[in-house]
């Protein structure tokens, strides 16, 4: 498979994502420009990534303008055909704005930007991952029915937990409902999460837990360290 990383004006984790995929995870990556709309080089086995940042300056609402860009129209079409789409941070916000994922990301409950390592766990998994967050609007919100459905269908990818893997209020860095850190759609081909796994794939950064996140989402095994 290969990856396409979309660059919007104001994206600022695009280079991190591209470098991590290429250099740390040894993947083929194509950079995509928001004004273009051609995804003909991708098949539904491939993945389009919407990186973090402040697309269009977060004006109006995070992700609200990016969803109207020409490239996003193609990404929506690609997702509806079953192609994989992965949004991190601002990318997650764009996916919600575009209607590819349910719910919305609201301003953090404590009203401040928060950058730190947090701990994540899947519903059934044992392992606790240490992954950084960096956002001011990451409080996941959806109505009760949607939340129930997400959990019933196992669409919640990750919960915020403490170091021991317990889902607690103290471990929730932004007030997300039910400690939700990331979700996927019902077809399991569109993924969004607020934490940044691309910031945790390197010995030099002192954290390799992000490799396991990429593995769980896209690969059959954890990529070798390169």
């Amino acid at each position: 498979m290969k990856f396409g990383v979309v660059v919007f004006p104001g994206s600022n984790c695009d280079r991190d994502m591209i470098e991590t995929l290429k250099n740390d995870l040894n993947q083929e990556v194509i950079t995509l420009w928001h004004k273009d709309d051609d995804l003909s080089m991708f098949t539904t086995d491939d993945c389009i990534v919407l990186p973090g940042g402040f697309s269009y300056g977060d004006y109006l609402r995070c992700g609200a303008i990016a969803r109207f860009s020409p490239m996003m129209q193609s990404v929506i079409e690609f997702a509806n055909k079953g192609g994989k789409v992965f949004g991190v941070c601002n990318g997650f916000q764009i996916l919600c704005e575009a209607g590819l994922l349910p719910g919305a990301l609201l301003r953090n409950a404590h009203m401040q930007f928060a950058c730190k390592n947090v701990f994540l766990k899947t519903e059934d998994g044992e392992q606790v991952y240490k992954i950084p967050i960096a956002h001011g609007e990451g409080r996941y919100y959806a109505d009760q029915q949607t939340l129930d459905e997400l959990e019933k269908n196992k669409q919640v990818l990750y919960y915020y937990t403490n170091e021991k893997g317990e889902v607690t209020t103290e471990a929730n860095p932004n007030g997300s409902l039910r400690n939700i850190a990331g979700i996927c759609n019902a077809n399991r081909n569109v993924f969004g999460m607020m934490p940044h796994p691309e910031r945790a794939c390197s010995d030099l950064l002192g954290n390799n837990d992000g490799r396991e996140i990429f593995n769980a989402l896209f690969f059959s095994k954890v990529p070798e360290l390169v």
Binding site: N12, C13, T20, Q112, F113, A114, C115, A134, L205, N207
Partner: peptide, 28 residues
């Protein structure tokens, strides 16, 4: 921390001090 947690200290994936602090910040 009340101060520095409001700053994105990790964007750019160069901050080698996030998980292993030194007297000066070390960046790649």
């Amino acid at each position: 921390r009340w101060i520095y947690r409001q700053y994105d200290s990790m964007v750019g994936t160069v901050n080698a001090s996030t998980n292993e602090p030194s007297d000066a910040a070390v960046v790649l």
